[in-house]
Simulated assay, not measured.
Amino acid sequence: MRFLDLAKDRYTTKKYNPNRKISDEKIQELKEILRLSPSSINSQPWKFIFVADERTKRELANASYFNKQKINEASHLVVFTAIDVVEKFEAQIHQYPLGSVSYYNQFLKPKGETEVKYWMQHQVYLALGFFLSACVRMEIDSTPMEGIQHEEYDSILQLKDYKTLFAVAIGYRDPSDANQPSINPKSRLPLEHIIQSL
């Protein structure tokens, strides 16, 4: 199938089939895909947490506002986190080629800790796009969500040196989900409003 067709089919799932789980094989494939995600200067300032344990998933669902039901019904929840300690990141990138470290030292580090953390978080969003594309290609439905209580997530997952940014519920849609494009067509701005060719 063409990627354009996949893009037309992909949507934010609102209702999952709780009785259908993603196979271990597909979960392992998704983990490897995330490991291979692109990032600026190969920075990889992230950790991805796959939650299948129902008790932990319920705890996180309770810290997710209106996303609670989706998380409880989904097969898995994937939590995307960014390094939150600049010194940890700097120790990590010293394993990389000299050019990458030089770029960081010359252009990023002088901007200060706050800007470096913002930059690291932006890299995690690159991985999100990669992940959502992989899911649709593997016929897995997904719901990216920023509507969560970040500090609660950090506490439940006992994160150290990392900070929760967002989560993605994954699984298989309930056939009655009213948000799927066959029932509720996608609403997007016209091409000429968002694309400029020079």
Rank of each mutant, 00 (worst) to 15 (best):
W119L: 06
K47F: 02
E146W: 05
L189H: 14
W46D: 00
L132T: 07
A74I: 06
T56K: 15
P110F: 11
E146F: 12
Y103A: 09
L128T: 06
E73D: 12
H150R: 14
A134I: 06
H122Y: 15
K163P: 02
E146Q: 09
Y104P: 09
E90A: 04
M138V: 00
S64C: 07
V116A: 11
L77N: 06
T81N: 06
H150A: 13
A127H: 13
D84R: 13
D174A: 04
H94S: 14
F80H: 01
P110A: 08
A74L: 14
I183S: 06
H193V: 01
L126H: 03
E87C: 06
G99D: 13
I170V: 15
K68Y: 03
W119H: 05
I83M: 15
K160Y: 08
E87F: 08
L98Y: 09
L126M: 15
N184G: 00
H122M: 14
P97K: 10
L128D: 01
K160S: 13
K88I: 06
Y153G: 03
Q121T: 07
H76E: 05
E54C: 07
D154L: 03
L159F: 12
E139P: 12
A74C: 13
S133K: 03
A134W: 11
F130E: 11
P110S: 06
F89S: 05
S75R: 09
I93P: 10
I156E: 03
L157M: 04
V168N: 06
D174F: 00
R55V: 10
S100D: 15
Y118T: 08
C135W: 05
A61K: 08
F48R: 03
R55C: 04
M145C: 09
L157H: 03
W46V: 01
V101L: 14
E59M: 02
